[in-house]
């Protein structure tokens, strides 16, 4: 994570992003750069806009203003084909959002078959390989509700990864899991990181953030209040709001 990456053109570049819901302004004038093959971790209190930011990056929300450049293309522009962009960006949700009426294998195969028009045989072998990678090839025929939370979340990750996204977004993916299941999901994300996947991760797992992040962004009041390498943010935060937030996390025994 050392020197040259900051010089490389970022894969994702956000400038002046604004998003409001009715009268409540969730993101305002937000800037963010995510260099390729790096991991950016978003931290901040509940309601600080982490989820909204991720949803904007995957075009699940229409932004009010600002530029979101992915690979040099402004994806906030209404002229872009949103479906094509979404298929380049994978997102994993807090509540898994697997399709309950499909088997694990069919969950993973749906997008390759219907969006990318991969032939059944190919899609199936890709899906099986991906399930093997997340350690669930023996669950291919199971329904999502037969799996544990950790297994479901790993399926959700496989479902996103099978489309070979340029960018992966993780939205508090361990918040709905039992503590003993958190580990299996975080291990998987660590492996993705070492494979060079570009990621933006919103999380409350500060230990994990410290370990996996190349840069940590503290969101407050709808913007990135402070950002830097984890050692700096966790070791020597500059902003009083950041210190306050981290102090509360420490008091709750989560760091």
């Amino acid at each position: 994570m050392s020197v040259p990456q900051t010089l490389a053109a970022p894969l994702l570049s956000v400038r002046g992003l604004r998003k409001s819901f009715g009268k409540s302004v969730v993101l305002t004038d937000l800037d963010l750069d995510v260099p390729e093959h790096t991991c950016t971790v978003l931290i901040g209190a509940s309601g600080s806009g982490k989820s909204t930011l991720l949803r904007c990056l995957n075009l699940l929300e229409v932004v009010d203003d600002g530029v979101v450049e992915l690979d040099g293309q402004d994806i906030a522009d209404p002229r872009v084909d949103a479906n094509a962009i979404r298929s380049k960006v994978g997102i994993v949700f807090q509540a898994f959002n697997l399709f309950p009426h499909l088997s694990v294998l069919d969950n993973v195969m749906l997008a390759p078959r219907r969006v990318h028009r991969v032939r059944r045989q190919q899609a199936e072998s890709d899906a099986v390989a991906m399930l093997e990678r997340v350690g669930l090839s023996d669950k291919a025929r199971a329904r999502p509700d037969e799996l544990s939370g950790g297994q479901q979340q790993r399926v959700a990750i496989a479902r996103a990864l099978v489309n070979r996204p340029r960018l992966m977004l993780f939205d508090e993916v361990t918040s709905a899991l039992d503590p003993e299941l958190v580990g299996e999901v975080l291990t998987l994300i660590r492996e993705l990181k070492s494979d060079g996947m570009t990621m933006v991760v919103a999380t409350h797992e500060m230990g994990f953030a410290r370990e996996v992040a190349d840069q940590v962004c503290f969101l407050d009041g709808g913007r990135v209040l402070e950002q830097g390498p984890p050692a700096q943010i966790f070791g020597a935060p500059q902003e009083p709001r950041t210190r306050q937030f981290l102090a509360r996390i420490v008091a709750a025994g989560r760091l």
Binding site: S20, K23, T28, D65, G66, A76, D77
Partner: peptide, 14 residues
């Protein structure tokens, strides 16, 4: 900010 905010030039074209 809700009252002060004006859409940028880019946003107006969008």
């Amino acid at each position: 900010t809700a009252t002060q905010w004006q859409p940028s030039e880019l946003q107006r074209t969008r």
